[in-house]
Design a binder for these strands. Sequence first.
DNA 1: CGCTTCCTTGATTTATGTCAACGTGCGTGG
DNA 2: CCACGCACGTTGACATAAATCAAGGAAGCG
Lengths: 275, 275
Amino acid sequence: MKGTIPKATVVAGGAPIPPRPPSPVHARLAEFDLLDSSAMDLLDRLLAEAAVHEEGTVLVREGEEDGRTRFLLDGWALRFQSLPGGERQIINFLIPGDTIGLYGALISRSDASVSLLTDARVAEVPCGAMIDLFHDSPGLGAAMCWIGGLDDRLLMQQLVRVARLDAVARIAHLLLELHTRLRISGATEIAACNLPLAQNQIADSLGMSEVHASRSCRRLRSEGLITTVNGSFVLQDRRGLASLCDFDERRFLGGRIPPAATERLLALARDPKGS
Amino acid sequence: MKGTIPKATVVAGGAPIPPRPPSPVHARLAEFDLLDSSAMDLLDRLLAEAAVHEEGTVLVREGEEDGRTRFLLDGWALRFQSLPGGERQIINFLIPGDTIGLYGALISRSDASVSLLTDARVAEVPCGAMIDLFHDSPGLGAAMCWIGGLDDRLLMQQLVRVARLDAVARIAHLLLELHTRLRISGATEIAACNLPLAQNQIADSLGMSEVHASRSCRRLRSEGLITTVNGSFVLQDRRGLASLCDFDERRFLGGRIPPAATERLLALARDPKGS
DNA sequence: CGCTTCCTTGATTTATGTCAACGTGCGTGG
DNA sequence: CCACGCACGTTGACATAAATCAAGGAAGCG
């Protein structure tokens, strides 16, 4: 069940921004609109060599020392911690455009494992290249930090969900989050409604038992809010789901950059040795 | 009940690392051992002008556009989100040495509020200065990202706690985390055992009702694991607390930098215009 | 055909929330 | 100095959400 694999074209010059490959990473960065064409070129180069891995592959193992940062270009993954009892807590789901091990270049020991939920296309950036990136393109470096900030925001939402919502609302909220994130990373509306999750993954993510996850999903299904097609969830009524859990889409949209920062970053790009 | 306020001395030259003020920020960065004396000087300058605020002050309001990044030099704060029902979810507790709004320079709209739990000394770094920092001292810039990575790790632990542990274990785990973090930021062993928390703050942080927090704290007290002295928790038996919740201190220690990254960062510092 | 994996369902137990009442210390204003 | 209100913690009775245990069904796959 390999996904379609769009080719990553490497563009040569610094010409007035040529059409980019439809990478979900680019889609996410569209909102971070400070990248000039040289930054884009650098990004393209970093993402050019992507490898395809099979469903179930473990990309990163908790405690491992592996400074690489990866970009998930296609497919889904999950980040989790193993617990003393042998269970796992899924920290978050990773979708196309997401970063894996963003801090790998700075914190050698990874604090969570990452495994693939579907076949996936993954680009790897070695530790050194990740550091150099900040030097070669301060704008792209800033973009990486910006991604870090957005990820932090996601984790906050996951916390609020688990800490405050009941089981049905937790699931609704999670599904809506994934839908929103998929749209941001460029999925079509139809693709964004199709979430390849198993119920035990939902349970492990939201801190509930499998049995209870099953019952809660059933409730959502019986109210016509979702359906399941061979193991995938399909959102049927976003409005209805949102009303169950006070979903606020704005918490996932809009990572706008303060004007003052914009100026400085542009100045830096023009004159990297300034001041 | 103002805390003792150590003076922040600004050091002039780039001399062979003079004794630094005993700032908790410096203490935290001790583990990030890549900062040369010029980076330290820059940091000292950023932290030199700290203002003292009263307990209860709201430093940041959710949704507000305020690109500043702050450093908590003394005192405690909490970061929280307001929920539709009017309650709050405390995302995490901030202790001396912690950063407030690390991503402020890149994401203008803050996604959580921060208010002071005690009187506190706070240094403010404007948005522009935060960006320039990456240019003026790549090492210090890396240190800021590194802090972001550690904060991410903390948030993961908070999630695991809330998602997986029962009420008593959640509280024990939280108290141990705070103890560990306090030691890292330079608190004496005695100070680190003394946590100025109210039970309703614990409840709002761990997603449980106030009543249940009260009962759970009582259990910990009755087993001699903690005591309370006029509203503060005092850890009495760390070993005992840890056995209740599988606390793994290593999750909070050791943000070691990969060797490859160390080399590159040092090279960058020596030759900021290299390659 | 007999595995496994994923999901389902019912009966029961346990953890936690909710409601309501009360205590204690503490600051404030009379 | 007292009376009052307020923030904070405590306690008990009760309701509810969710875990657990146990059994079984449906699909995929050798």
